[in-house]
Every structure is written in C-alpha cells, then in structure tokens.
C-alpha cells in the first residue's frame, strides 16, 4: 500500500516535470501575439485564438519546410531500416572476418559529435552539389542512425531461434523467402524500434538542417522555425513559434502511438516450447 502511494506520487512528479513545458507551449500557442509578448505571463490564455495556427499554415515557407521534413525523414528512415535490417541479419547469422570491426566502427560513428562534422560536410556538399538538396540531408541522417539501428536489430535477430529459419528452408523456402516471411515478421518489434529512433533523429535534427541548407528547397521544419519573424523587431513571434512547435510535435506523437501498437513484447513467445 505504501509503495503504491509512493509510486503514485513519483509518477505525478515525473509527469509534471516532463509535461509542464509541453503544456505551457500548448497554452502559449493559443495566445495572441500581443498577449504572449506582454510582461506578465499566466498559464491560461485570456483570449484563446487560433490566429497563430492560421498564420503558420498560411506561411508558404513553413509549408515547404513541412514537406521537406516529412520527405527527408521518411526516406532516411526507410533506407536506414532496410540497410540496417540486412546488415544486422548478416552480423547476427553469418560468420565473416571483420564482423567485430564492423560493429566497433558502427559504434564509433554513433559516438562521433555531430557538430564536428558539419564544417567538412558543408565543404564537401558544396563541391559535390549536394548542398541544399534532400540527399544532402538524407545521407548524414542515415549514417548517424544506421549504427544504432544495426545494434538494435542484430540483438533482435540473435533472439530468434535458428530453427525458425531452418524449418522454413525445409518447408521449401529460399534463404530470401525465409528471411522475408519468417525472420523479418518476428523481428518486427526491433524493426519498428529502429524505425522510430531513426525518424526521431531526422525529424528533430537542427544542426544539419540549418548548416547544409540555404533555401526552402531542402530546409526542414526545425531550421525553418528560426526564420520566423514577429510583426516588428520588438515583438518576438513567441506564440506563432509555439503554434508551429505544436504542429511539428503532433505528427511525432501520432507516429509513436501508431508504432507502439506494433512493438508488442514477447511476439516470439510460442515459437518454441514455452
């Protein structure tokens, strides 16, 4: 009983700690520009308005950025997950020389500070003509998310009993069919976990987005937010930014909720004897 009460209090504290800023932004997004800029803040908007949302949606640059962000993130996620699945499968199942090297290098890349690469990439991308293009962002997103995806997925693949695959082969499946029809569905929780992590990274990235783009051709939403301007230089566009932030956060929340259903723990239970 006492532990239950303690748990409840702890839970409430954590939720407050995590969600209060979000709630603040949410309320802020319904305040008019003037109210948000006023000196005395209060939690609830005095005069709730949807003007901020209208303004953000009517902004052409924001629309372009939203398309860029979705496109780039989805492509980077898809490619990264496909590559990571294949690589992780090879690492989990095959015995080849240099396996440890591949894994260690992957880990080293994941540890590399992102900012230290921005300068060199900027130069390279200008020369290669990748600056301010979708591929120019997709490539770095992929290279930074692949290591984590590979590590996650190879752990999942190792959990799947060998017999599953052998049974499929005896049943008449080619190696590819066994992989696609048996292994991948069984590793689905791992695949979705990897997909979410990759999508988060790409969607939330600011450093690459601001450094490797110059126009709305490829600029993603987090970078575009920096270009919002208020009605004049003394009034910061706080509430408009809050509205835009809400609109950027909502898709992520929806995607997580969708994928979360797929991440059913213990999907492999019942494969072998219980």
């Amino acid at each position: 009983m006492r532990t239950k009460v303690g748990q409840g209090i702890g839970l409430v504290l954590i939720l407050l700690w995590c969600l209060f800023p979000v709630a603040w932004i949410f309320s802020l997004s319904f305040k008019s520009v003037e109210e948000a800029a006023a000196g005395s803040p209060q939690f609830l908007p005095k005069d709730p308005t949807l003007d901020t949302y209208r303004e953000v949606l009517a902004n052409d640059d924001f629309q372009r950025a939203l398309i860029n962000s979705f496109g780039i993130s989805l492509i980077a996620t898809t490619l990264s997950v496909i590559l990571a699945t294949l690589a992780a499968y090879a690492i989990a199942r095959l015995d080849f020389t240099g396996k440890r090297v591949v894994l260690s290098i992957a880990l080293a890349i994941a540890m590399f500070p992102v900012v230290s690469l921005v300068g060199p990439l900027f130069d390279q991308w200008r020369v290669l003509g990748l600056f301010d293009t979708w591929p120019g962002l997709i490539i770095p997103y992929m290279s930074f998310t692949l290591p984590l995806a590979i590590w996650t997925l190879s752990a999942f693949f190792r959990e799947i009993p060998w017999e599953m695959e052998q049974a499929a082969q005896v049943d008449g499946a080619t190696a590819w069919q066994a992989f696609r029809k048996v292994i991948v569905p069984l590793a689905a929780p791992g695949v979705f976990t990897a997909a979410i992590l990759t999508f988060f990274f790409a969607w939330n990235d600011f450093v690459f987005g601001i450094s490797l783009t110059s126009t709305t051709d490829a600029r993603p939403v987090p970078a575009q937010l920096a270009f919002f301007v208020g009605p004049d230089q003394f009034n910061a566009p706080t509430s408009t930014l809050a509205a835009a932030s809400m609109m950027v956060t909502v898709p992520i929340i929806i995607i997580v909720l969708l994928f979360q259903r797929k991440i059913v723990a213990g999907l492999t239970s019942g494969a072998v004897k219980g």
């Binding site: 017999e163 599953m164 049974a167 569905p185 069984l186 492999t268 239970s269 019942g270 072998v272």
Partner: peptide
C-alpha cells in the same frame, strides 16, 4: 521435418 522445439511460426 518435425523439430525438437517444433519451430512453429509464432506470427
């Protein structure tokens, strides 16, 4: 073939 741990496809 019938495997020792049956190797049924759980999905």
């Amino acid at each position: 073939m019938v495997f020792q741990n049956y190797a049924l496809y759980p999905h």
